[in-house]
């Protein structure tokens, strides 16, 4: 089945184009929408394209299973929610962000929230050469993983904290984390964190009592 490609100008709704297999090109400018993604799609930003959720919810929400979602060359901002202001992955799906800027989002409701930029507690999250910056949350201002989510961050820059909880698994290869990387399991399981050649400027804080399985190489 060939790709269904559609180009969307700012001001035009994106949601109706998010159908299985679609490649949605977002034209330069600000697209004011909070997207609930329920199909395997590719969202591709043209230079200067911004997705601004205007605090209406997470900028990107994937809550269903068995999807493959790719987001490329886009700035994601203005998202807000209880968890994952910029992106919340709560379905057993794979979400891949490539050269995406996740900036100016917040997860600050309900006594604080987790994952100001990105939060996943299910599924597989892949970030490649992304920038996550200026996001707010009580815990994990940058990226938060919990439950049994898996994450892979290759290159890029995470400004803020990264938190890995419960039985989540995170591998970070290269790039910079300006905040701390905090890991804590539960009394019934431990998260896994693998750091390869990444600079964690705020240090790695592995919980003393409920530590993660931590592998650090070339850091």
């Amino acid at each position: 089945m060939g790709e269904s490609i559609v180009r969307v100008e700012p001001g035009q709704p994106i949601g109706p184009h998010l159908v299985p297999g679609a490649v949605v090109l977002l034209a330069s400018g600000v697209h004011r929408e909070s997207l609930v993604i329920e199909a395997s799609v590719t969202l591709r930003g043209e230079p200067g394209a911004v997705l601004d959720a205007e605090r209406r919810g997470p900028a990107l929400l994937v809550d269903v299973d068995e999807l493959e979602v790719v987001v490329e060359d886009l700035t994601v901002t203005g998202g807000a929610g209880e968890a994952g202001g910029g992106l919340r992955l709560s379905g057993w799906s794979e979400v891949r962000l490539v050269r995406v800027r996740v900036v100016g989002n917040e997860a600050t409701v309900a006594d604080g929230g987790v994952g100001g930029g990105i939060y996943a507690h299910r599924g597989l999250l892949r970030l490649s050469d992304c920038t996550v910056a200026e996001n707010r949350a009580r815990a994990a201002s940058g990226v938060g993983l919990s439950g049994a989510a898996r994450g892979e961050i290759v290159g890029g820059r995470i400004e803020g904290d990264v938190v890995v909880l419960d039985g989540a698994e995170l591998t970070v290869v290269g790039g910079v984390i300006t905040g701390a990387l905090r890991a804590r399991g539960t009394t019934t399981r431990a998260p896994t964190v693998v750091l390869r050649g990444v600079a964690v400027e705020g240090g790695v804080e592995n919980d003393v009592n409920l530590p993660a399985a931590l592998v650090v190489e070339d850091c």
Binding site: E82, S90, A107, A110, D111, G113, V114, G147, R184, T186
Partner: peptide, 18 residues
């Protein structure tokens, strides 16, 4: 709190759906 690592841990942000 005990499961998740203490009252401090559970009081540091959460998510109702979860």
């Amino acid at each position: 709190a005990k499961w998740k690592g203490g009252y401090e841990a559970m009081g540091n942000g959460g998510y109702g759906a979860q």
